[in-house]
């Protein structure tokens, strides 16, 4: 199958991600974590455990943000057929999967001491897990398809349709649970806690942006290398 869209990706050279963005992002994380751990009082009910929330909750937010990017750029690819949109969606999907896995692990580390079990089939936990599985499928599809146009179109469709399903999964698991037992309500929020949470969220957002940009740079480089190799093979014949 002739690959027309590769012309477009070769038109602009792959971008360079600034090292400074990385430095700033990680410095921000260190600052936010130090600040929030030092300033936050031990919670009335949860004691020190509540400190896990400073990483767990922002990680969950970043997961959803990353998959929102996947959805938006998948739709944009289907609309405009610009290959770079596909590469950006794929980069966001991989980074999102990393944050998703992190969210699940931190949730379990929280759940064991707080609830006495590693896992409960609660709506948020379960839909986060299903989201993880949907995007594992997305990444597997990309790994198993060689033709770049097929890969782009198919993963855009899978990404968009998968994202549509997320609220439905959440709703269905919630009904499934609440029809049998009441939902557990989150504790009251301390103002100091909210500030720490926001700082950590901003810091992690910088890390997210840095990761996606860096991953996108790699994707563009690899794509350009593929094009070079293809051109060389054509010229050799």
């Amino acid at each position: 199958m002739p690959d027309i869209s590769s012309d477009r990706s070769a038109a602009t050279p792959p971008p360079r991600t600034s090292v400074w963005l990385g430095f700033v992002a990680f410095a921000a994380v260190i600052f936010a974590q130090t600040f929030s751990i030092l300033t936050s009082p031990a919670d009335r009910d949860m004691g020190h455990l509540q400190k896990i929330m400073y990483v767990h909750v922002p990680a969950a937010w970043m997961t959803f943000l990353a998959f929102l990017v996947v959805f938006v750029y998948s739709m944009r690819y289907l609309w405009k057929q610009n290959e770079n949109d596909d590469l950006l969606a794929a980069s966001a999907a991989e980074v999102g999967a990393v944050f998703n896995g992190l969210t699940l692990m931190l949730g379990m580390i929280w759940g064991r001491p707080a609830w006495g079990v590693w896992w409960v089939w609660d709506a948020r936990l379960t839909s986060t897990l299903v989201l993880f599985l949907i995007f594992v499928g997305y990444l597997a599809l990309r790994a198993f398809v060689d033709d770049s146009v097929q890969r782009a179109k198919w993963s855009a469709a899978v990404g968009a349709i998968g994202a549509i399903n997320v609220p439905i999964v959440y709703m269905s698991v919630k009904w499934w649970r609440t029809l049998h037992q009441p939902q557990s309500s989150p504790g009251t929020l301390d103002p100091a806690y909210t500030l720490g949470l926001r700082l950590n969220a901003i810091a992690l957002l910088l890390v997210l942006i840095y990761f996606i940009r860096k991953r996108y740079e790699i994707a563009r480089l690899e794509r350009a290398i593929e094009d070079f190799a293809q051109a060389a093979a054509m010229g050799g014949k």
Binding site: G137, A140, L141, I161, S172
Partner: peptide, 16 residues
């Protein structure tokens, strides 16, 4: 492998 991997997570609401 790919079809069940893609399909089954999507079917969670149907299954429930």
């Amino acid at each position: 492998v790919l079809l069940p991997l893609l399909l089954f997570p999507m079917l969670v609401p149907v299954l429930l």
